[in-house]
């Protein structure tokens, strides 16, 4: 059904396009500004010349951060926490979601209910903290990994996916006498690559951005991650990062804004590199999750 586009509609579309472009511009602007600041000279930053584009381009802020080395300690810790954490998460989530997805499992309904209940009510911050302290895993990455082994939300997503696999596939190999572990590895997992990718990314981003647990459980400065490091930099700035090398005139001195911005950019780059995948699989995950919560 084609119809003539009226003038009113034309105006609507024009305004709509402009409005959405403006909204996207506002959402993107802070990121662009932070990149521009991280690459600008101190004088340009302090006199407020930096807007969308770096002024008097310099990479001193990045250079100082690299030479200081502390940020890279933190980056290394973030990578370890993220990779190992995600691996544990996926193992744990498959190990619980697969058995619970089998319809005739005795006690399956009760176990699912008990697990979902932990989503609605939990002991809260203080009892969890007391537990971690009593287990003597404070100040080690185990204090991050163990309490967060399985997220109930992700478990539900994976369980729903497993439940929707054609049962005939599993029944066929069951007759051949394959046990459940063989079925999981040979039939179910190869068919579940999409859901595993989705859930892995959910976990991965969660670990990468994790802040609160690192702050309360990790006290050793050599074990902190990027997010905590950046928070420390924002709160009490370490002046050694501002010192310029020999033969640098005073107007090339760094300001804290430049170094903080550089640290923020360094933390965000890895996320932006995998962003196309994140977006695709996250949207899928939201859909799967909302089909049957």
């Amino acid at each position: 059904m084609r119809h003539r586009i009226t003038t009113g509609e034309k105006i609507f579309h024009a305004i709509n396009y402009i409005f959405l472009a403006l909204a996207a511009g506002i959402a993107l602007f802070p990121f662009i500004n932070v990149i521009a600041v991280s690459l600008s000279s101190s004088q340009a930053i302090m006199t407020g010349k930096v807007f969308l584009w770096p002024v008097d381009v310099t990479v001193r802020a990045y250079k100082n951060l690299i030479e200081d080395g502390q940020l890279f300690y933190a980056l290394k810790n973030t990578v370890i926490v993220t990779l190992v954490g995600t691996l544990f998460n996926i193992l744990g989530t498959v190990m619980i979601a697969y058995p619970l997805s089998r319809k005739h499992l005795v006690g399956g309904k009760l176990i699912t209910a008990l697990i979902v209940f932990t989503m609605l009510f939990n002991g809260g911050l203080i009892p969890s903290f007391v537990l971690v302290k009593n287990l003597n895993i404070m100040n080690s990455f185990w204090a991050l990994w163990l309490p967060a082994l399985v997220s109930v939300y992700n478990m539900i997503i994976m369980k729903n996916f497993f439940e929707n696999l054609p049962p005939s596939l599993i029944e066929a190999v069951q007759i051949d006498g394959a046990n459940d572990i063989c079925i999981l590895f040979q039939i179910v997992l190869p068919l579940s690559v999409p859901v595993i990718a989705t859930v892995s990314l959910f976990y991965c981003v969660g670990w990468w951005n994790n802040y609160f647990n690192v702050m309360i459980y990790i006290t050793d400065s050599e074990k902190i991650t990027m997010t905590v490091k950046i928070m420390q930099m924002i709160n009490n700035f370490n002046d050694t990062l501002l010192q310029s090398g020999e033969g640098v005139t005073s107007d090339q001195q760094l300001v804290p804004e430049a170094v903080k911005s550089a640290a923020i950019v360094i933390t965000t780059i890895p996320i932006m590199c995998v962003y196309p995948f994140l977006q695709k699989y996250f949207v899928k995950g939201v859909m799967i999750g909302s089909v049957k919560g």
């Binding site: 909204a23 993107l28 802070p30 500004n33 932070v34 951005n209 802040y211 932006m272 962003y275």
Partner: peptide, 20 residues
Amino acid sequence: ILYIPHFISWVVLGGIIINI
């Protein structure tokens, strides 16, 4: 573009906000 901030930690978003 509109989805980007969803993937960024509050530490980074907050740092950017305080900066600008």
